[in-house]
Design a protein around this nucleic acid. Structure first.
Lengths: 123, 123, 123, 123
DNA sequence: GTGGTCTAGACCACT
DNA sequence: GTGGTCTAGACCACC
């Protein structure tokens, strides 16, 4: 499904969250899909089950997962985190500023964006 | 110059680094400018001098500062770390994908980028 | 593992770095080997944990170590910093020039180099 | 004559010493040559006279200079610092080991040494 | 005055 | 258990 980079400074549980977010955003996981159990996931990633547990708990709190008792966890509908878009736009802003500082023109950046792959079509 | 947000989960020394990066990228600090001494900065931000020094040390390692023994630290020329731009473009990519997932069109994103402030003109 | 020379003018943390570099270069520490925890190392060397951490941090920045959160630090693959070899050759150059100035012939120097121990064979 | 690199972490007074050593070893300064006065040197290098003073004092202590009262300082005969050669050979050793670690063969190193310029002929 | 090193000891997050 | 952050305060070298 995905791999954990132990050398990465980002905590493992955050990497798990990010990877699920990525899979959902890219459309490879869709609403209603079942996600592996905590134990299976932990075995597959070769990490401590507590770590996976922590990631799942947060994914559920952030409404990416929902849990059916005795059946497991499932992907829920795309959540609408308030302020999320504004935060993304602010990040975009910061990166664009830095690219300009490093010599790129806005035109070059726009061209780069136009090239961004249409993974969105898979939904 | 700037303020530290103690409530923020981001470590103080990283906040210091980010703030200096921001000031340099925006052109408000230019090559050769002297930055406040470690002690002065610590007093101004109301943090421990060691914390400021840690930030300065890293800024120097990342080539944003250079230090003259017994005289202080100064802004150095914009670093040309290879691969840095590629990393930024990859981040840009990821954010654009997520914005599209959340319903924005590429056209909207491009318009947003065109609006990015012209802080670059001050250089 | 090694000892710190407190009388030496060289800072303790630099001595720690140099000693690890030596152990890695000589092949006694290999990729993937776990290094003692910051606390253990500090106890063994009889120095403050912060001092050891500073050394480890720099070894990580220079790509000799990598760190797994909550698990410890490990030896990473030999870094291929570009320009590193050129710098070494330049140092070699300078030393050879000085040895010649002090009366050694190139032949004597070459013989000396041939005698350099084959610690490399252990890899 | 030479320049000081303020950005360099090596103390200025040590840079002055190293530069004089280099000029003497390369043969550009010979026994009996007069060296600039402390004040002239300080003005030329754009550094504090105390700093130059400190360098000259050490060069005299290490027998590279000798001073004639009221006349200035002069280059003395090449000093025979005891143990100096052993130290150089040890440095050579360390560098060769590191070059081998980074993939160079002894043969390559020997070839490189053979190519070292014959600045020695200028004496 | 400047930066740099080191200690002692507290507290936190991750596994 | 692990590493990481931060403080308070001492001491040193360089300019």
């Amino acid at each position: 499904m995905f791999k954990i980079d132990l050398k990465n400074r980002k905590p493992i549980y955050e990497q798990v969250i990010e990877n699920f977010r990525r899979l959902i955003i890219s459309g490879r996981l869709k609403e209603g899909d079942r996600v592996p159990s905590v134990r299976d996931m932990a075995r597959e990633l070769n990490v401590n089950p507590n770590t996976v547990q922590k990631a799942y708990r947060e994914l559920e709190a952030r409404k990416y997962f929902y849990t059916v008792l005795g059946q497991g966890s499932f992907i829920s509908a795309p959540p609408e985190e308030t302020g999320e878009i504004d935060a993304l736009l602010e990040q975009l802003h910061a990166i664009v500023r830095e690219l300009i500082f490093r010599g790129k023109s806005k035109d070059e950046i726009v061209i780069f964006i136009e090239e961004t792959g249409g993974q969105n079509d898979k939904r």
